[in-house]
C-alpha cells in the first residue's frame, strides 16, 4: 500500500471510531518502515479534524467521539514504539478546565475537554461549580499552560473575572493562557476581563489552542 493510502485509511478509521482497524493499520504501516510521526500528523489527526466538523454539525455524537479518541490513543501507542524517545507521550500543552464557581452546567465544558484530549492536549478537568482557588491551585500544581473556564449564566460570569485576578495574585497569569466560553459569554467579555481568548464552540477552542501550541 502507498503511504498516501495509509493516511487516507487511518483518517477514515478514526472517523468510523474503528479501534481494531486502526490498530491493525498502524502495525502494518510500521512494518513497511514508514515514518510514525507522519501517520499521526497526516492520517490520524486528519481523522480527528473531520470528526470535529461532523460533531459541530450534529452528525456524530459524544459517545462516538469518545470511542474515536480511544481508537486514536491505541494507534498512537503502537506508532510510538517506533518513535524517538523524546517524541513519545508528547502533549501539545497542559490545560486546566472547569465550569466556574456557582455554575453546574458542564455538558459543553465536558465536550471541550474531550475534544482537547482527542487533539493531543493533556487536560485536567476540574468538573462543575469549581471554586476559583481550585483553578489556581491546580494550575500551580501541574504547571498549566492554559486555564479555561466556562459560564452558562450571567450571574456566574463574574467568577471568570475573579479567576483572572486570582491567577494574577498568585503570580501565574503571565506564564499561561486564559480562555473562556459558555453560552453567557462573548468575545467582548473576554477582552473586558483580560482573558487571552474566547471560544464559541468546542471546535473553535481546539482551533485557537492548536494555533498557539502547534
Amino acid at each position: 500500500m502507498e503511504k498516501a493510502e495509509y493516511m487516507e485509511k487511518a483518517a477514515q478509521h478514526i472517523v468510523d471510531a474503528d479501534e481494531e482497524a486502526v490498530e491493525k493499520l498502524a502495525r502494518e504501516y510500521l512494518i513497511e518502515g514508514f515514518d510514525p510521526i507522519e501517520m499521526i500528523e497526516k492520517g490520524l489527526s486528519e481523522g480527528i479534524r473531520k470528526l470535529g466538523v461532523l460533531f459541530d454539525r450534529g452528525e456524530i455524537f459524544l459517545p462516538h467521539l469518545i470511542i474515536a479518541s480511544e481508537a486514536m490513543t491505541t494507534a498512537v501507542k503502537i506508532l510510538e514504539q517506533a518513535m524517538p524517545a523524546d517524541q513519545v507521550g508528547k502533549k501539545l500543552a497542559k490545560v486546566v478546565i472547569g465550569t466556574i464557581e456557582g455554575d453546574v452546567h458542564d455538558i459543553g465544558k465536558g465536550i471541550v475537554a474531550t475534544m482537547l484530549r482527542v487533539y493531543g492536549f493533556e487536560v485536567f478537568d476540574l468538573g462543575r461549580d469549581v471554586p476559583i482557588a481550585t483553578f489556581v491551585e491546580k494550575a500551580k500544581e501541574i504547571g498549566a499552560d492554559v486555564v479555561g473556564s466556562s459560564a452558562l449564566m450571567t450571574t456566574t460570569m463574574v467568577g471568570q473575572k475573579a479567576l483572572e485576578k486570582a491567577l494574577k495574585d498568585a503570580g501565574l497569569r503571565d506564564n499561561l493562557i486564559t480562555m473562556l466560553g459558555g453560552a453567557a459569554t462573548t468575545e467582548h467579555w473576554a477582552a473586558k476581563i483580560g482573558a487571552n481568548f474566547w471560544a464559541e464552540s468546542a471546535g473553535d477552542t481546539v482551533m485557537k489552542l492548536k494555533e498557539i501550541f502547534s
Partner: peptide
Amino acid sequence: EFVLGMHGG
C-alpha cells in the same frame, strides 16, 4: 438548534 447526542442511540 439540533438535539445534542449525549447518548446517540
